[in-house]
Design a protein around this nucleic acid. Structure first.
Lengths: 363, 363
DNA sequence: CTGTTAGCGCATTCAG
DNA sequence: CTGAATGCGCTAACAG
């Protein structure tokens, strides 16, 4: 390529630009100067919203490459209407079920080119509230949340203003907020019916705190199944440690109306009961049949393999986030919230008394 | 309280301010006007850096409360030096080990008043690179990352510039980057020695991809233990599905030099092997003894309970994040990286051949 | 102790 | 099709 006098002075300017931008992050005007255009042209080339000549676009691209320019997303978000980020609030990250939900959320967000601000509430409504506010202050474009205790949550439409919100796994009292749930009640009912079909009459529901929506919704399913079969209900709440669970179970199992089957409210309680059963030397399913709500990675390898209600964690996170992006991209604030309920599956293994060698899944 | 003429007009102004700010988010100057002070006074009251009179501070606080003013964190981050956010990049969120690590990171971040941008790399160096760039563009104050494949990672000091970075669980090639690891090699060596003490001579290492640092580091420990005992090594790599693992194991177990004990490289492979063992109808530990690297929630409840090397996931996440905040708050860019190695524990249950009723932990 | 000025990097005006 | 001016909300630097 020939170098004319004009080109030479241009090259000189280029050198200046390159050295100038060496120590601080290059900005859009650095790129503009180097390319010999206005900042708006750069902006337009990068955003691709308005058409520019192929030649100038090329020069901009070259300059961007030379300076290794990266747009400052902070400035962009500050200036514009969107931060291209969403918030995710879940109770705990160490719970595999919630972690799976979170995975779905981050995956969908990436598909939309969005970043995710994550935080945990620890099931504490105050922490949850504070974290939601923090996210709002960061101008997230939307929030997906697994709300903490229904009765105490401070998550309302008023708090969020125009920012779209989707709750999942558990609802919030505010009916204008979208929510994605699973069939907690119906699923539990079906599995209790299955236990009854195995001939059990005294079936106990072993559960965590009543203040959690899912635990209660499942309790309802248990009640209905028992009631419909003309059986007496037997609920054991607040099993929040292996010690406590063992103590309670020890007492109940040797009592006069000892249950012959157990249904646990969630994986944490399943774990406690598994521990109690081992300590008490009970044989499953002969001494005691056993089923749990919520499948987990190694349910197939406990002894015996565990019959469970499987919740579609990934689908739920995916559905919630998709719903959020519907709102985000359409920019509408709903006066009435959606309520999506996803189906669950019953996974029959052997702890319920079934003899299958491999799991049988009922939809 | 009496209302003078001056107060009345002030109240009028207040009303105006309140209605004006009703439909858009109140800004600092809204607060300043309502409180009858300058924006800087508001800024100072809120940040608490410079002393202001108790009386004026009070008026500012009142105005803030009336308008429900919340500082725009985006503007603050844009203007200032810090975004008060850190980035977290992990391979997967659905892996309980990584989820635990993530939990520690978010916890420590909150202790420092920081938000966390989370993303998953899926073990793909390109995704990891793109996500890191994205975070840099968002001006995070630091990044904690569980890097993907060592040989292919594009994470270098040059990429991050002055932004502090801490790698954990696995190192990166760039020695200037801080890293927090666990005793992969030493831990594996100890557990293999334990298997040898049980009388095993043919011990196989069953593993995932060799391109993962941890898998290799553990392999090294296995090799050393075997070599020191004068035994022949027997490594089975790329067990990346239950089917494949079953196929390989079936063949090996009936072969002439069939291993009498197995060591798995991580929980995923443990799961595959557990499945294979069940399908092949093998009795643990009599037909085949078994130990795994990485403890998990229900290792106690598999049949038989599993002997494992327990890694301190929470401590590792905590250490990495603390290290990051040391850098972030001190604002120094190190020329030489720290390398912290955390100890592991051996949890003896029954799959190795031990007869303990409860787990015995060796430090 | 407090107010004024200025500008961070970008994209939405509005003119050419 | 392209460029110049303007201001988003906040805080460092400088007055007063």
């Amino acid at each position: 390529m020939k170098v004319s006098a004009g080109n030479r002075s241009q090259n000189r300017a280029k050198q200046d630009e390159l050295t100038r931008a060496a120590h601080r992050k290059p900005t859009m005007s650095d790129v503009a100067r180097l390319a010999g255009v206005g900042t708006m042209t750069v902006s337009r080339v990068l955003s691709g919203t308005v058409h520019v000549t192929a030649a100038t676009a090329q020069r901009v691209h070259t300059a961007v490459a030379q300076l290794k320019y990266r747009p400052n997303e902070l400035a962009r978000a500050f200036r514009g209407q969107h931060s291209h980020s969403i918030g995710l609030i879940i109770p705990y990250l160490y719970d595999p079920f919630f972690a799976n939900c979170a995975h779905a959320v981050t995956t969908v967000a990436r598909e939309h080119g969005y970043s995710v601000l994550i935080t945990t509430s620890g099931e504490d409504p105050e922490t949850e509230f504070a974290e939601a506010e923090q996210m709002l202050q960061r101008h997230v474009d939307g929030i997906v949340v697994i709300p903490s205790r229904f009765k105490h949550t401070r998550l309302t439409r008023a708090l969020f203003g125009r920012t779209p919100v989707v709750a999942f796994d558990r609802p919030v009292p505010d009916p204008t907020i979208d929510v994605v749930l699973v069939q907690n009640t119906a699923g539990t009912r079906r599995i209790v019916e299955h236990l009854i079909e195995h001939g059990h009459r005294r079936i106990a529901y072993v559960a965590l705190s009543r203040s959690l929506f899912t635990i209660n919704a499942r309790f309802l399913g248990y009640r209905r199944a028992m009631h419909d079969a003309g059986l007496e209900e037997d609920a054991i709440f607040d099993c929040d440690s292996e010690e406590k669970t063992t103590r309670i179970l020890k007492e109940r199992v040797s009592g006069p109306d000892a249950p012959t089957a157990l249904l646990t409210s969630n994986t944490l309680v399943t774990r406690f009961v598994l521990g109690a059963i081992a300590r008490l030397g009970l044989k499953v399913p002969n001494d005691l049949a056993f089923a749990g709500f919520d499948d987990f990675d190694l349910a197939e390898f406990t002894s015996p393999p565990l019959t469970v209600v499987r919740q579609p964690a990934l689908e739920m996170g995916r559905a919630a986030t998709s719903l959020l992006f519907d709102r985000v991209t359409r920019g509408e604030t709903p006066s009435t919230g959606n309520r999506i309920v996803l189906p669950v599956e019953i996974v029959l293994r052997r702890s319920c008394g079934c003899k299958h060698h491999n799991a049988v899944v009922i939809h």
